[in-house]
């Protein structure tokens, strides 16, 4: 799929507008519902939710156990539940295993904890290559893994949704959950990067 979003044909814009006014005129959608849907994913649900869960798992061994055993239930404890998060599974990176998530068939993604997927996640290059050459895909994101680390790619073909729990960076032993959350990028929870090292945090 085209990844160039700067010169979209205005025909698409017109088509979208025409469809919206037709559906509103026919009474098939309510404008206030459209606004509520947009607001939910623009302002409320996003990767901050997932970063919160990861930081909790790093600091609370019991929560980590619950997250790895049943991530939907653990996320619901924190109020993160809904569409595209009904069957959540957390997969943990270790010094031996690195997890990477893709949906080769469409764009399945854990909305409740990460929000809507980025363009690259939905693009043909990522969807085709994540399952056939993950190491070179990771390299394009700047993530170089040691040779001995085994990559485990999760292709989200069902309604199961995957959240990567990255490794906790060194030098953060006395950090609070709030501080740690800032190290957990969205990309780290998809598995294309590691969590940020403390020195990479913007002051």
């Amino acid at each position: 799929m085209s990844s160039d979003h700067s010169h979209l044909p205005s025909e698409t814009e017109l088509r979208a507008k025409a469809l919206e006014s037709l559906l509103v005129e026919k009474g098939l959608v309510k404008p206030e519902a459209l606004d509520a849907i947009i607001e939910t994913y623009q302002d409320k649900v996003g990767p901050r939710n997932g970063a919160h869960l990861v930081a909790l798992a790093w600091t609370d061994a019991e929560f980590r156990q619950r997250l790895l055993a049943d991530a939907s239930a653990a996320a619901a404890e924190m109020g993160y539940f809904g569409r595209q998060g009904e069957h959540l599974k957390a997969v943990e990176n270790t010094p031996e295993i690195h997890n990477l998530v893709v949906c080769t068939l469409c764009s399945c993604y854990p909305w409740t904890v990460l929000g809507l997927p980025p363009v690259w996640y939905k693009s043909a290059p990522y969807r085709s290559r994540a399952v056939s050459e993950p190491r070179s895909v990771l390299a394009e994101f700047g993530a170089e893994l040691p040779e001995e680390v085994r990559i485990r790619v999760w292709d989200s073909t069902s309604e199961m949704r995957y959240l990567v729990v990255p490794m906790r960076p060194a030098g953060t032993e006395d950090w609070s959950v709030e501080q740690l959350q800032r190290l957990v990028t969205r990309n780290a929870m998809i598995g294309v990067e590691q969590a940020l090292a403390p020195e990479r945090l913007a002051p």
Binding site: V131, S132, E133, P134, R135, S136, R150, I151, R152, V153, W154, D155, S156, T157, S158, M160
Partner: peptide
């Protein structure tokens, strides 16, 4: 192929 595993539902 480079060595790795793919898990599919």
């Amino acid at each position: 192929a480079e060595p790795f595993d793919v898990l599919i539902d």
